[in-house]
């Protein structure tokens, strides 16, 4: 494995400054600096605050990654960076930094798609990706079902959210329930001691007519509104609200739709492997439900450990290493940061 490429990956698409170093499929370092605490009081990510934090964290995070990996920057074979999608100003800091490394080290630069990187990261944990595989990416910024033939070239979108991202719904419902931002882990924890069938919340885009036009798409806006209405109605009636039951019932509705659609997509495509990635993949109920339902259909489920599911530099490095190994052409130095880079563009 020592001749596998040593790749440094930079991720700044949202509020985490991530720098990862891999050698082929081996993770050597995954340094992350988060500005999440600075955003918490706003209940969401403030782009200018995130961009400022990326600038301050960039060099220290690169240094920390090199130290952890026990490598010198000059030994790196290639630089990979998230060029999109994400927050424009935040992406730009990472892209400019990656270019400076490429220029200063005389090494190739790969501007990569953030979603494809979420898929590629699983190779660091579970080895080569099954080809094809069905990837479900769920986080605060995305909810997508993808058919992945070859993660370096062929990523085909099958469906996506038509309104809120799954993680966004978690954040907003957490806020409604007086739980801190980001909402995912807090809902998960509150739900653990709640009754998941206490309240029958709606399952978006699963009705017969929706299934014709939006079979593999998601909608979480209606669910979130339903939770808000339910809470409001209870409050008006002077009833006490059991946060645990609401959290569990809400989480059940989200996980039900996600796993149902993922398995439907895999089955309809004749795919036997589902990969779940993104911050919401850390949700314990989602993992358990996906594994149980997939097993019943003879489908295998791969989920990277929680630390690799959230945004990080290792995923970008993992995709970069795969691009180098498969001999893909690098990006030019005038590479733009593209806040809406389509999933079909794996390397910009």
């Amino acid at each position: 494995m020592s001749d596998a490429p040593l790749v440094l990956g930079i991720e700044t698409s949202c509020d985490e400054t991530g720098v990862g170093i891999v050698r082929g499929h081996t993770l050597l370092a995954d340094a992350v600096a988060s500005s999440v605490d600075e955003h918490a009081r706003f209940g969401g990510v403030v782009p200018e605050v995130a961009s400022r934090a990326h600038l301050e964290a960039m060099v220290p995070t690169i240094e920390r990654a090199c130290e952890t990996a026990g490598v010198a920057l000059r030994d790196v074979d290639a630089i990979a960076v998230t060029s999109g999608p994400g927050l424009a100003g935040a992406l730009l800091v990472g892209v400019a930094s990656a270019k400076a490394l490429a220029l200063g080290l005389g090494k190739p630069l790969y501007g990569v798609n953030h979603l494809a990187a979420h898929v590629a990261v699983d190779q660091l944990e579970h080895g080569p990706l099954p080809e094809p595989c069905l990837a479900m990416l769920v986080s605060g910024g995305h909810s997508s079902l993808l058919r992945v033939e070859d993660v370096t070239t062929g990523v085909e979108p099958l469906g996506a959210t038509i309104d809120d991202a799954a993680g966004e719904a978690f954040d907003k419902v957490a806020r409604l329930l007086g739980l801190p931002f980001p909402g995912g882990p807090h809902i998960d924890r509150a739900a653990a001691s709640g009754n998941s069938v206490a309240i029958d919340f709606p399952r978006g885009l699963t009705g017969r007519r929706d299934m014709e036009r939006h079979r593999f798409d998601f909608s979480f806006s209606g669910l979130k509104t339903a939770v808000a209405r339910w809470v409001e109605t209870q409050q008006r009636a002077g009833a006490t609200i059991d946060v645990h039951d609401v959290a569990a019932s809400f989480q059940e509705a989200v996980c039900d739709v996600l796993t149902r659609k993922a398995i439907d997509a895999a089955t309809s495509q004749g795919i036997e492997d589902i990969l779940i990635g993104g911050g919401v993949a850390a949700n314990s109920r989602l993992r358990a439900m996906a594994e149980e339902r997939a097993a019943a259909q003879g489908i295998r489920v791969r989920v990277p450990r929680p630390g690799l599911c959230t945004d990080n530099g290792a995923m970008v490095a993992a995709l970069g290493a795969e691009l180098v190994q498969r001999g893909r052409a690098p990006s030019a130095l005038d590479l733009p940061a593209d806040s809406s880079q389509p999933i079909t563009t794996v390397v910009a």
């Binding site: 960039m58 690169i62 400019a96 930094s97 270019k99 400076a100 490394l101 200063g104």
Partner: peptide
Amino acid sequence: VTARTLALA
């Protein structure tokens, strides 16, 4: 960020 990173490299 370019100045800082280039200086590092």
